[in-house]
Design a protein around this nucleic acid. Structure first.
Lengths: 195, 195
DNA sequence: CGATTTCATTGACTTTGGTTAAGAAAGTAA
DNA sequence: TTACTTTCTTAACCAAAGTCAATGAAATCG
């Protein structure tokens, strides 16, 4: 039995919301998407330009990060079955301050935001799916905000372990530290206390 | 000359986006909105229930905050001409963890999210306005996130002063401290260094 | 495989922010 | 105005995270 393709994977995710989506409808993705494979540490999008693309992660793991006087801060992770991109940059026509980089060998379906919006025009059913994805991102950002405000670095680490059990062994510690907003040495000490 | 009413104020804000909105169209707001006046420290929405309402601030100032083992954390401020509400709670049918409270005597136009969405159905022009407001909120949340991750409390204070020049004398220090994610004593020390 | 680079941990020390407690200043109400 | 409450500041002390440097482990690469 062969591995499911990236498009089959995407289709299966879309169909959770839209069970009646047929092959014809779905073909739009194949016609407009582009498959990209990234090696570990390769970047997909750089900062400084207005983001034009979204990406569906077929397999692998990426992070989105920025740099502030030489220090990296990691904003988010995108794993298999999730969508990556900087819609805020696209929507507001603002240069992205974020870099997207593969933490593992990663395969993506890349689609331009513009074309995706055209697709939604043509297939209004897709609106519900698009809203769902956008809404999940929003909820995630809202929770991240609250956590950064109300929890200590130590609590944030515990919550990260709870919520991302599957990722803790796929992400280097110094990047988890960036995500928590602390230095790697501090994370190392927190982990020591936890043993 | 009489003061402009709350509805005139709202209309003037909507018309920035929609110059062609006529009185007829606009009457929907007056028919479906409710004017509420809050005294200083009065709460508008409490936590624990799914949010159903949005509010336009005619005059005054509100804050949105949560409580985490007895400690308050302030998420956002809403001043005159801005929109308050917890759309994420409404949209996801999740009980809000946030309380909205007036920091000054405040007058609001309150409108249910549900009715507002119906209004947008009836007047598709309003979609652009609604999108603009939603988009501004999103951008604001994105920036807040980045700031909490990449800037020190001291830098966050400086940025707050820059970005909210008009608010620093209207918000008690201990609430600004909550917004910055630090204790009031720490804010006091930071302010002392700034002199 | 060994050589090299990257990453994680540890220790000593510094800095920053949190805690507690007290008192000053400002705001509010009688 | 006084009396009362709330908010802000200060100080001394503590705890946590940052910094710097060294070491060792793990991953990567030729």
């Amino acid at each position: 039995m062969s591995e499911p393709s990236a498009y089959q994977h995407l289709k299966s995710i879309v169909q959770i919301q839209l069970p009646h989506l047929n092959e014809q409808d779905f073909s739009f993705f194949e016609e407009n998407g582009e498959i990209i494979t990234l090696e570990k540490n390769e970047t997909w999008e750089l900062e400084g330009k207005v983001s034009q693309y979204m990406a569906f992660v077929h397999y692998g793991l990426m992070r989105q990060f920025g740099i502030n006087d030489g220090n990296e801060f990691t904003v988010d992770f995108f794993k298999e079955g999730e969508f990556a991109g900087n819609y805020i940059s696209f929507q507001n026509n603002l240069p992205s301050e974020l870099i997207t980089q593969a933490l593992e060998k990663t395969e993506l379906i890349v689609l331009s935001f513009k074309r995706f919006l055209e697709l939604v025009e043509m297939l209004p059913d897709l609106q519900a799916f698009s809203d769902m994805v956008g809404n999940q991102k929003l909820l995630k950002m809202h929770r991240r905000n609250n956590t950064l405000l109300k929890n200590s670095p130590e609590e944030r680490y515990d919550l990260f372990v709870e919520d991302h059990q599957d990722l803790i062994h796929r992400i280097p510690q110094y990047i988890i530290a960036q995500y928590l907003g602390i230095r790697p040495e501090s994370l190392s000490r927190i982990r020591k206390r936890r043993m």
